[in-house]
């Protein structure tokens, strides 16, 4: 499957609440050791559902090339 053009980027102030994990339709997000959310860049389709629900508003949808 081709990679999507857009991707989620998690900000440094993530509170690791897991709201994004619950809504991700492709299971691309995990909470890394209770510290921060992490996106599997290969799986992420850039749908933006995680950014919509993030209570801290720390998730951005960016162009895949800008995600690094």
């Amino acid at each position: 499957m081709p990679l999507s053009l857009r991707i989620s980027r998690i900000g440094k102030e993530c509170v690791a609440c897991g709201c994004c994990v619950r809504v991700c339709p492709v299971n691309a997000i995990q909470i890394f050791r209770g510290i921060t959310a992490r996106v599997d860049e290969k799986k992420c389709v850039g749908c933006g559902k995680c950014a919509e629900v993030c209570p801290a508003a720390v998730i951005e949808i960016v162009k895949r090339n800008d995600a690094q």
């Binding site: 690791a16 609440c17 897991g18 709201c19 994990v21 619950r22 909470i31 050791r33 209770g34």
Partner: peptide, 8 residues
């Protein structure tokens, strides 16, 4: 060592 309580 996790925040499973928050998310689940």
């Amino acid at each position: 060592g996790s925040k499973a309580y928050c998310s689940r």
